[in-house]
Design a protein around this nucleic acid. Structure first.
Lengths: 223, 223
DNA sequence: TAGATTGTTAATCGATTAACAATC
DNA sequence: TAGATTGTTAATCGATTAACAATC
């Protein structure tokens, strides 16, 4: 018989968890979901580390910030660890998300079906273009940005994705802040200036390519 | 008279530059470009730090990995530092880039006009769908993935963007590796297994949202 | 000159790794 | 029991910050 009792729950993160640790947690989650799809019941920190190019020690240390989730001699039960990590990340329940900007990128994000499995669902879209306001895109209603505060309150939206041109991004962010947003995923290639109580994560595609460029150009010297 | 002589050039990065440093370099570049657009000639590490939420000391230390680019008492000449950072990152000349996958995201990336200013240009698109192969998207020719090696050699492509569904990503990466790719920007939510001589940068939108979720949920406790 | 700001060193702080007793 | 693997501690390694002489 396998002991099925739940391990120590970890709803509250201790203070001072490094950002890098939280980022790896997402990687562990993604890989664990992949493993369960492949039919695996359990895995070990060493095995997971091999798949991700990390050491087992680092994985165990990362998890230790939040509690004890493994079984000595056995490893980790995939489903259980998935649930725990989702608890830690706060994605056990689906977050309703606002999308600002229905340009090319915005539409691509709307069509992307991968968010729901990870606990996110775009439930409202905002734009300033009167050609799209009032219509639906991919089944999601498009509102004017003036309605941000109303719709966000009504639908209990706390997170938003900004997918507008660089020149419009700060203004969009300001409106979101007014409307009480708590976190912004920003695709515009600018640094947003935001109050300290709003979290922002930026994704700049050019920056990612620059990192690639640097690595490729300097590969030989660093060998 | 302002001394206009170029500072020490920095074509080769010293060994062991932390990844975080290179990432910040991209941030400095982006912000400097913004400043020049606003008409500024010079700036200081302190000012730049304020804009980016970093300390001046960190910026000076980061730059010191690569050379001396500033003027005591004056700061940095924006245009000059922009050129130097582009040199360091390897984006002084435009990289021709391959895009694999012309789905929603692929098309959105093709329509995005921001790459060229930063030194990247998608010059060839690859897919397996015979409905698009042979056509053009946004003026860029679409080839079958079987032609990867040929086209990449011919157009001297070293970097590629993978924008295919998760299930097809590893296969696409394998083909790129066969064709001699040196760097891959991967948008599929999977860890690619690649030889050590190929660099990969991954962008997973769900992971970014998870980081946001964690930060928002844990904001109060960590205050 | 006085004021500003760099580049660099030393001190501090934080993250990763290695090792191993405890556990299954 | 023997083998495997965890959680955790201590040691190592790396990154950030603060301070300041040198410079313009």
């Amino acid at each position: 018989m396998i002991d099925d009792s739940p391990r120590q729950s970890a709803l509250n993160a201790p203070e001072g968890v490094p950002k890098a640790v939280v980022n790896r947690l997402s990687l562990y989650l993604r890989e664990l979901q992949q493993l369960t799809r492949a039919g695996l019941e359990t895995t070990s920190s060493t095995r997971l580390g091999e798949l991700l190019g990390l050491t087992g020690a680092q994985i165990r240390k990362d998890l230790a910030y939040f509690g004890q989730f493994g079984y000595p001699g056995i490893g980790y039960r995939c489903h259980e660890l998935i649930d725990q990590i989702r608890n830690i990340l706060g994605t056990s329940h689906t977050w309703p998300v606002a999308l600002v900007g229905v340009g090319n990128l915005g539409r691509a994000l709307l069509r992307y079906k991968g968010f729901s499995l990870r606990g996110f669902e775009v439930v409202a879209v905002f734009d300033v273009d009167h050609n799209v306001v009032g219509s639906e895109v991919e089944g999601i209603p498009v509102f004017h940005v003036d309605e941000l505060a109303d719709v966000m309150r009504q639908r209990q939206i706390r997170l938003a994705i900004v997918a507008v041109p660089a020149a419009a991004a700060q203004k969009a962010a300001d409106r979101l802040v007014e409307a009480g947003v708590e976190g912004i995923l920003n695709f515009a290639p600018v640094t947003l200036s935001l109050p300290a109580n709003v979290t922002t994560v930026g994704v700049d595609l050019a920056i990612e390519l620059e990192q690639l460029s640097f690595a490729v150009v300097n590969r030989n010297e660093n060998a």
